[in-house]
């Protein structure tokens, strides 16, 4: 399992209702289902992924989270998850608000744009950063709203969001001394667990 998901699953308790926005092939929900007996619900728009979800016995709804999540009732899930997708959505701030409305607790993971290699690439070479976390060219990237750990902290502060846990990990989703010292400079992937 992806290491960020390994970290996330500690925050999922048995029998929880979990909504996974952009659930991909459904393997994480399937894992939580068999390990923790969760009530699973995934949102996905890619037909191949949707089929893989069905094969895995995961509940999947074909719906674009950019359009609306109004069909999900307030407080209807224990945890709403958005993994590696925040930077691709049209309005991350609105989505975060919607996640807080639907879920009692939320989990978001995203690539930290302020990682030192990204900064170096921009400053020294004058090119848009690329890394294994950001493997795209500037013209074909699905990442339309890059954000940094500092930016997300600011958003949480502005919106009165309580951060329950915050972790940064490297390419292999491991944490290190440097990352803990200066997460915004050394962290590649950010993982937030938050509520209101």
């Amino acid at each position: 399992m992806r290491a960020d998901l390994k970290i996330i699953q500690q925050w999922i308790e048995p029998d929880m209702r979990v909504l996974d926005l952009g659930c991909g092939d459904g393997s994480f929900l399937a894992h939580l289902k068999s390990e923790k007996n969760i009530f699973d619900c995934g949102l996905e728009i890619d037909p191949d992924n949707i089929n893989l979800c069905l094969q895995a016995g995961v509940n999947v709804i074909e719906q674009d989270m950019n359009k609306s999540l109004a069909n999900f009732r307030s407080d209807s899930f224990d945890t709403v998850l958005l993994a590696q997708t925040l930077q691709t959505v049209e309005r991350p701030d609105i989505l975060v608000e919607e996640m807080l409305r639907i879920g009692k607790k939320c989990i978001i993971t995203f690539p930290n744009f302020a990682y030192w290699r990204h900064r170096l690439k921009l400053v020294s070479q004058g090119n848009m950063p690329q890394s294994s976390a950001l493997p795209y060219e500037w013209y074909d990237t699905p990442n339309i709203h890059h954000c940094t750990i500092k930016d997300f902290d600011t958003l949480c502060e502005e919106r009165n969001i309580t951060i329950l846990h915050k972790t940064v990990v490297d390419f292999n989703h491991r944490s290190s001394f440097l990352m803990n010292l200066n997460p915004n400079l050394f962290g590649i992937n950010a993982i937030y667990h938050f509520t209101r």
Binding site: R17, F39, D40, C41, C53, L54, N59, V60, I61, E62, Q63, N71, F72, R73, S76
Partner: peptide, 13 residues
């Protein structure tokens, strides 16, 4: 689908 979500049923769409 939305009705079933409201009823907290397991649904795929």
């Amino acid at each position: 689908v939305n009705t079933l979500l409201k009823a907290e049923k397991q649904v795929s769409y």
